[in-house]
Simulated scan of single mutants.
Amino acid sequence: MLEHKSLREKVVLITGGTSGIGRATAMAMGGAGAKVVFSGRRDPEGEETAALVRDTGAECKFVRSDVSSEADVKALVQTTIATYGKLDCAFNNAGIDPPVKPLHEQSLEDFDKVMAINVRGLFLCMKYEIQQMLTQGAGAIVNTSSIGGLIGFPGISPYHASKHAVMGLTRSAALDYAKQGIRINAVNPGMTDTEMLDRLDSGSVNDLSEVPMGRKGQAAEIAQAVVFLCSDAASYITGQPLVVDGGFTAH
């Protein structure tokens, strides 16, 4: 956790904040001095995360929300403004993964479900976050892509399609709003020790043999990258993927 207060008095909105990278980032943002609003679809995990964020000394609020619902996303941003008066940073992290199987065995239902959360949800979040940030004249957004948004693995083609789409949305939106003071970047984690990676039990997905550091990343390590991209230390960075993968894609 960052000891310096690089986001002191900033208001940060995090989606998918009830576990994994989202939870770790909510804690890191609190430790960096931010006021945190985070969302998710599970109340018990949301309350657990809220307690952990408050343990850092930060103010926080949990909002139950489904990012595939436009009404939910609009209400989430409105709640953030009603609670803390502004929106300085957003971490669009909500995402799901499909079953591990080759493309011809993937169902249309699973494909649509992944796209609804990972792509439609991201679009909706950016739409309403940016509307607010335009009224303020500044803001920073970080989207969770993946090394799967830059390369491919067998068995999870819908997931890779969605994460490549995240990169397209990130780069294009960054160009739309650079002159308005809104920075938009992506964080691209490699194999990170989370529940999602545990579900992807295919050897081709979890194989650490080609990771130069020889280990999985930790959610807290990804969180620090997100804090950096939201901070003024990254003030000249926009439209970029920040790859945090232990050297995997350096091959």
Rank of each mutant, 00 (worst) to 15 (best):
A32C: 09
C60L: 06
G85N: 15
P102C: 05
G95M: 05
V53G: 00
Y128D: 00
H104W: 05
G40W: 03
G137W: 13
L87W: 02
S107V: 09
A32Q: 04
G139R: 11
G46T: 03
P98C: 11
S65D: 10
K113Q: 14
M133P: 08
N143A: 14
S146F: 08
A58K: 00
M126T: 07
G121H: 05
L103H: 13
Q131F: 04
V77G: 05
A50K: 04
V77M: 03
H160D: 15
K74A: 14
N93P: 13
T49G: 04
Y128W: 14
T144M: 11
S107Q: 13
F153T: 06
P102Y: 12
H160G: 14
F38T: 00
E70S: 03
G57L: 03
K113V: 11
T144K: 11
P154C: 14
E129R: 05
D97Y: 02
L76R: 01
V53N: 00
I156C: 06
V142N: 01
Q132E: 07
P102F: 08
A71I: 10
H160C: 15
A138H: 15
I130Q: 01
S68K: 03
I141Y: 01
N92Q: 12
V119D: 09
V77I: 14
L52F: 08
I147L: 09
L134V: 15
F123N: 04
K113C: 01
E105G: 02
S39K: 00
P158N: 08
Q136W: 11
F123S: 09
E47M: 02
A71T: 11
Q106F: 11
L150R: 05
M115T: 13
G57N: 14
I117P: 01
C60P: 00
V119R: 01
I151H: 01
Q132S: 07
R64Y: 10
R42N: 12
I156D: 02
L124W: 08
T80G: 05
G30M: 03
S68M: 09
G85H: 10
D72W: 11
G33V: 05
D66F: 08
E47R: 10
A90E: 02
H160M: 12
T56P: 00
A116K: 00
G155H: 04
I156V: 14
Q132P: 13
G121W: 04
D43C: 06
V37M: 01
Q106Y: 11
R54L: 07
I141K: 06
V73R: 02
S69D: 10
I147C: 00
G30V: 02
M115L: 09
E48Q: 07
L87F: 15
I151C: 03
F123A: 12
L134K: 14
K101W: 12
Y128H: 10
D72Q: 12
V77T: 13
S39I: 06
G33Q: 03
G40V: 02
I141L: 05
E109T: 15
M126C: 15
L52I: 04
A32T: 00
S68G: 14
T80L: 05
A140W: 02
I81E: 03
V67N: 08
K74D: 13
C125G: 07
M126W: 02
L76E: 13
S39P: 06
R42D: 04
G31Q: 04
G155I: 11
E47P: 03
P158K: 10
P158Y: 10
E129Y: 09
